[in-house]
Simulated assay, not measured.
Amino acid sequence: MSVILRPGKSSATEASSLSFDDMTRVELIWLEKQTEFWIRFGNGAGEQVLDRSRRVVFFMPGSVFAFVRWAASDYGTVLSRLDILRAIAPGCACQTLPFVRPGGEILLKIEGWPKVEKVLRHVDAIEGLGIDPADVDPDHWRHVAHWMKADQAPRPYTAERHAAWLRRREIGK
């Protein structure tokens, strides 16, 4: 089993200084209409195929990604969950989640298909603006989580807000 590197947004220097053991690993499973775990957005640094239905995706520290988990039994859906996480640096404190090693910073955690579907539509709207959801202000994902838990509609993410986030991020470097 070999790991396949994917060219991404991270620099070659950054990728070469970290081993895959230092990256956040997410195990994906795809058993059609039974268990389906997938990455909705995010820039993986590589992947390892374990078998026909399982693979592991690696994320560089600081990368933001959405991890969707869905499972069903003979009687219907038993799990619908969407987590938006920021990968952590080696040795940093983190929150743990099943199938995510060692864990990450949870920006959004939603359960139940109706709410998961609303967040997926929100992600689609952001992509419709030409913005990669992995580059969205992390505070916006927290905002969406809080409003969704209150059963309210979150504010839409705008190009103006994104431009302000990018400027703020540059100042913080």
Rank of each mutant, 00 (worst) to 15 (best):
M148L: 11
G44I: 02
P156E: 08
Y75T: 13
G62V: 01
I88V: 15
Y157G: 07
W113R: 13
P154W: 01
S73E: 15
E127Q: 13
F59Y: 08
L120M: 13
G76F: 02
H140W: 03
L108Q: 07
S53Y: 02
W30F: 04
V100D: 07
P98L: 09
K118Y: 03
Q152F: 00
V116I: 12
E36H: 09
K109M: 06
F59T: 10
S63A: 13
V49I: 11
V100H: 01
Q152W: 06
A66W: 01
D137Q: 03
I131C: 14
L97D: 05
H122L: 10
P98T: 05
L79F: 09
R55P: 03
V100M: 06
R69I: 02
P61H: 05
P102S: 15
W147C: 05
D151R: 00
S80P: 06
D124C: 03
V68I: 10
V144F: 03
P138Q: 13
M148H: 03
W38Y: 13
D83F: 00
F37E: 12
D139C: 10
R40G: 05
E36R: 12
V100C: 06
F59C: 02
I88M: 14
S63G: 08
E127H: 06
S63F: 01
W147R: 12
K149V: 05
T77H: 02
A93S: 09
V136H: 07
P98R: 09
P114T: 04
I131M: 10
R69Y: 00
A89T: 10
L82Y: 06
F99D: 11
K115G: 12
R54C: 06
L82A: 14
L85G: 13
S53L: 10
A134M: 03
S53K: 07
G104Y: 07
G91K: 02
Q95K: 03
K115R: 08
R52F: 06
L97F: 01
Y75M: 08
